[in-house]
Design a protein around this nucleic acid. Structure first.
Length: 465
DNA sequence: TGCCGATTGAG
DNA sequence: TCAATCGGC
């Protein structure tokens, strides 16, 4: 079989955020069509200011390394090229005589543009499989697109379970001659002078095997938790988000593994549903990451000037004086990840208590999260700000203290805010001024004052509009 | 995937 | 007195 395929003209597999061999429809289709040339194109032009952030680039480096190693075990390899993807792929096709390009669908506005451009230059076959259902295919009774998560999720659920995941291709025929590849190190995806990635190396194993390990651990835990109703919610603790973002594992694989394990996994599966929902939203609103969906919302009088900028930096560095917020922001900086519940609290604090434009927070997350995802990030920030297509409102202001207690975050705070580690659990969420260690910063603003300032600004804004 | 303050009812 | 509940926002 290999020899007969080798005689045919090769096909290109264009990898993007789908860096896996299992359940990879583009790779499977290519494997049965001819010799395969796997390629990853680093294209910082097509995404413009949405080029990958620092944490994502660190992840990408290691994920590409892992993908290349997995391909080499199959006698194949990963070709690395840099430049505009339509030009790079056309050039590669000329060099190799490749007849077609296979890829998975992606829905970020820049990827949709790139897909159009590649489709003009070459024969491009786009496959589904990075979402539970193809984005755009879940519609209301009248054929419209859903705007609210809950009805969307109900409709999506009617189409579950997803198809059985594809197996890893048994063989990958090599082309007669391998085209040249960039050296990964030359791309300088890793941090240079201050190496800020130490905490990330400790915590993450990018790549398909790392993803499988996380999934196995999570499935085991889900089974163990079965019947134990009072344990903290398992949502957000799978640590799969960056693996899913980079496509090192597919949502169908996760769905089947988790559903087969039994237990109460509905909440967790709905988190996977949010991924699909976010793509559904950016298909309708491609500019969702930069433009509020609610009419007029972008004219809100956000704070600006030196004091606001200083507050933004304090928030970024985890020095707000609110332990739950600071723990989250420091976890983000050190590991490239933050617990989902804490993301909501930290986002609410920036937008409501500090009255800073949600897009400033979105940009920070974009640069620092290893799971930074255009759709999910925009959907979550607009949800937090109350500016989005969903039903959340600006005047719903989270109280950092009661959220911290409800979330039972004492241990979390001890880990990430060591200045407070000695405080008893009753004090750690809200250390009184007398107890508060000198090393821990004072609050940027009291909760009540921040809440009233936000509500006042909202009233004035509504009055003017 | 809210918060807050008023009300209620058990003790 | 205080925890639980509920309606308004």
């Amino acid at each position: 079989m290999t020899s007969s395929l080798a005689a045919q003209s090769p096909v290109i597999v264009w990898f993007r955020r789908d860096l896996r061999l299992r359940d990879q429809a583009a790779l499977s289709a290519a494997a049965s069509a001819g010799p395969v040339i796997p390629v990853y194109v680093l294209d910082d032009e097509c995404a413009k200011h949405r080029r990958m952030g620092g944490a994502s680039r660190w992840w990408l480096h290691h994920s590409l390394e892992a993908l290349d190693a997995a391909l080499r075990k199959k006698g194949s390899r990963l070709i690395l090229r840099r430049g505009r993807c339509e030009e790079v792929l056309a050039q590669l096709a000329r060099e190799t005589g490749a007849s077609a390009v296979h890829a998975l669908h992606h829905y970020e506005p820049w990827w949709r543009n790139a897909q159009k451009a590649v489709g003009k230059a070459l024969t491009l076959h786009l496959h589904h499989g990075n979402y539970l259902a193809p984005p755009g295919s879940v519609t209301t009774g009248t054929g419209g697109a859903y705007k609210i998560f809950t009805p969307f999720w109900r409709a999506l659920n009617e189409r579950m379970p997803p198809a059985e995941p594809l197996r890893r291709p048994h063989t990958l025929a090599a082309p007669e001659r391998w085209p040249e590849s960039d050296a990964l190190g030359d791309w300088k995806l890793l941090p240079a002078k201050p190496d800020w990635a130490g905490g990330m190396r400790d915590f993450w194993e990018p790549g398909e095997e790392g993803a499988a390990g996380r999934l196995a651990a999570f499935v085991e835990a889900a089974a163990r938790y079965e019947g134990q109703r009072n344990l903290p919610a398992i949502e957000g603790t799978s640590f799969l988000s960056p693996h899913l973002h980079f496509g090192e594992i597919s949502p169908a694989q996760v769905w089947h593994a988790v559903a087969d394990a039994g237990g109460s996994v509905a909440t967790f599966l709905s988190e996977i549903g949010w991924r699909d929902y976010a793509q559904n939203v950016i298909l309708q609103f491609p500019d969702y990451g930069a433009t509020s969906a609610k009419e007029g919302f972008d004219d809100f009088p956000w704070r600006s000037g030196a004091q606001a900028e200083a507050d933004l930096v304090a928030w970024q560095q985890g020095r707000t004086g609110y332990p739950i917020v600071d723990a989250g922001m420091r976890q983000l900086w050190h590991t490239g990840w933050m617990h989902n519940r804490v993301r909501m609290i930290a986002a609410s604090f920036l937008v409501k208590h500090l009255l800073i434009d949600w897009r400033r927070g979105e940009q920070w997350f974009w640069d620092t999260l290893v799971d930074a995802d255009y759709g999910s990030n925009a959907v979550n920030w607009q949800w937090s700000a109350g500016s989005g297509v969903d039903a959340n409102m600006f005047v719903r202001i989270m109280a950092p203290l009661s959220q911290s207690e409800k979330f039972d975050a004492a241990r979390y705070i001890r880990e990430w805010v060591p200045e407070l580690a000695d405080l008893p659990s009753g004090e750690i969420h809200d250390p009184a001024p007398m107890i508060r260690p000198r090393a821990y910063p004072a609050r940027l603003i009291e909760h009540r004052a921040g809440r009233e300032r936000a509500l006042g600004a909202w009233e004035r804004f509504k009055g003017e509009g």
